[in-house]
Amino acid sequence: MTTAHQPNQSSKSTSHWLDRRLVLFTGKGGVGKSTVAAATALLAAEQGKRVLLIDVDSTGNLAALFEHPEVGFIPTEIYPGISAMQMDTEDSLREYLNLQLRLPLAGRVGPLANAFDFIASAAPGVKEILTMGKICWEVRESLEKRAPWDIVIVDAAATGHVISQLDSPRAIRELVKVGPVANQTEWVIEMLADPLITELHIVTTPEEMPVSETIDLVKSLKTRVDVPLGNIIVNRVLPEPFNRADADIFSNLETTNSLAAIEKTAGLGGKKVLAAASLAVSLRRSQSKHIAYLRQSVDLPLVYLPYLFIRDHGLRVTRVVSEALGYEMGTGG
């Protein structure tokens, strides 16, 4: 079987991608963003890196991709070298009040949940900043050797929400001009913009909606947010069954004479086999169209991951995707 796409060796931004300290993944719901984040974690861990994997979306089956039960806010080792945590903005606020503002008062304000609900609802961006703040804090702790992570990998919010998350430090800084929060947005903004530390990848599939959302997202990211962009990872790419010469031979098989010969030697099912191949050709052609459109619409490197026929989910899939990703991206470092 021929693959249409050679490993991506062209662009600088694909090399050493695992040397970043903060690697974020976003993408439309349903494109396999979590699987790609998990696969990246596996790849990094196999290089001997200590990984913190953060699940921001609370659909939370990231741990299941390692056959591990759900995890909470406290990082828990789910695989050798990989610890995972589930983002929880309320826990994040509690930690922030205690650690950053040294407000032991927090415990006595009565039900913190109520107050938190109030702030978070009244001041949009608060939940988002608590998410980004916690992520960046883990990175900073690791840079200053207070946390063991070599790399923090984030299964970030979906395309619809990721901008407000990445943009939240700036949004908060605009709303709150003075005080400790204003000061602390500064280093978060700097860290997110630092190309030596941070890289954001977008996961998509070669279908209409995911591609058009990706194109829109790249545009808004470039205009609204200062975050270094990495690759567009095109997931679930179907194999191209035939090269051009073989495609001609294949279409000859569907002529009456050939079909009669096929049915004689292989039985009446021969037609079904050809129909399946024909379906595969059409589906792949449709994907190619979307890939071509994506390629001409964005100027980021495209990386391709194959559709997996064999398995649907679980650690086996994570492992197979991880191998494909390592091959396509280069293991770097």
Binding site: L97, L103, V109, G110, A123, L175, V176, K177, G179, P180
Partner: peptide
């Protein structure tokens, strides 16, 4: 109000 005291310290009073 202790809650406002915190909110004020975190967010600034005008906000």
């Amino acid at each position: 109000k202790p809650f406002l005291k915190i909110a004020d310290r975190i967010l600034g009073n005008a906000f």
